Amino acid sequence: MQKIYFLAVPFDKNLVTLALESGVDGLIVEDERVESVRQLGRTEVLPVSSLTTVCLESKADEEHAVACLRSGGKVVLRAGWEIIPVENILAQADKLGVEVASLDQARLAAGILEHGVDWLLVLPQAATELKSIVAEIKLSQGVYELSRAVVTEVRPVGLGHRVCVDTLSMLRKGQGMLVGNGSAFTFLVHAETENNPYVAARPFRVNAGAVHAYAIMPGDRTNYLQELSSGDEVLVVGHDGRTSLATIGRVKVEVRPMLLVRARVDTPEGPREGAVFLQNAETIRLTRPGGEPVSVVSLREGDEILVRLDTAGRHFGMRISEDIKEA
């Protein structure tokens, strides 16, 4: 994940405040401002003199940037950089930064050679887009392909320990977490964004499922729901496949009546089936293809819901190549 710095030169108190509130990783300020700005928040503050700024105009400039990076310098390419020279530098050294003056430039820099540059220096002229840059570059984990699945079974299975994941974020309709009995077939469990006559909405919460279930996590990892704890980052997924990060504020594990939900996706290679155990309560919902939440209480065989298909095989949450079946 790229780090994002904001260039607060010349110094502007309002822009510094905006940058801190936006959640940047650091600020670049005039040397004499470093100590006073450090007192404003627990954010990295660097003097502008610590940067080696390179303007790419020739092959010699590329070679200079590579040499500085290899010697441990903090190198940033001046605005106006082009993709091919940046790729050449990234092929030879890491920890490269580039100046960006818009959200579009930030997106471009973040995707070069798929990995992207290591850090971005947002210029003051991009201040109006700073929050969008931070949200997209730091929080997005790309777009997941979701599939329509047909519900094949819904039945009570008795009591079990279920996990509520309360985040620091207000989730929106159509968003939730991918949870399932196996990592190869996960269900989009909807956040508690909806009111009902008995319980107010809790849009920060995903009542995610049984303790043994897999949750798809950032960085193409999985965790058992029981393993999650305060301060962990979880992956939030929308019905359109767009992803973001949320930090866990609290995890609640309680004994509740549970339901077993099974579903099937018919693929060109044949049917794929999966299951998930969820609390038997009206406030627990899965997600329809259009993004509408559907309560597990009203869920019926033949209903369509959103799931994610993947290849099976995980070891301590990391993807491995293994002949494995999860049922």
Rank of each mutant, 00 (worst) to 15 (best):
R155W: 01
P156A: 11
P156D: 07
V157I: 14
G158I: 04
G158Q: 06
G158S: 10
G160F: 05
V165T: 08
T167L: 01
L168W: 13
S169M: 13
L171C: 08
R172F: 11
R172C: 07
R172W: 04
M177A: 15
M177P: 03
M177S: 11
G180A: 14
N181M: 06
N181I: 01
N181L: 09
G182I: 04
S183K: 07
L188Y: 10
V189M: 13
E192P: 02
T193M: 00
T193V: 11
E194D: 12
E194F: 04
E194N: 07
P197K: 00
Y198N: 02
V199R: 13
A200N: 06
A201Q: 11
A201H: 05
R202N: 08
P203R: 03
V206G: 00
A210H: 14
A210Q: 12
A210T: 14
V211H: 04
H212G: 09
H212E: 15
A213S: 11
A215S: 05
I216A: 12
M217T: 12
M217V: 14
P218R: 07
G219P: 06
D220M: 11
D220F: 09
R221L: 15
T222D: 14
T222I: 15
N223W: 09
L225R: 00
Q226E: 14
L228W: 10
S229W: 13
S230H: 09
G231D: 04
E233S: 06
L235P: 07
L235A: 09
L235I: 12
V236G: 08
V237L: 10
G238E: 12
H239D: 13
H239G: 01
D240K: 03
D240Y: 11
G241C: 03
G241K: 06
S244G: 03
L245M: 14
L245Q: 10
G249S: 08
G249V: 05
R250G: 01
R250E: 05
V251T: 12
E254I: 12
P257N: 05
P257R: 05
L259K: 07
L260R: 10
V261Y: 01
R264H: 07
D266W: 10
D266C: 10
T267S: 08
G270P: 14
G270H: 10
G270N: 11
G270C: 08
P271C: 02
P271H: 04
E273F: 04
E273I: 04
E273Y: 13
A275I: 08
F277T: 07
L278F: 02
Q279L: 01
N280P: 05
E282P: 12
E282S: 14
T283Q: 15
T287W: 13
R288N: 06
P289L: 10
E292N: 09
P293C: 15
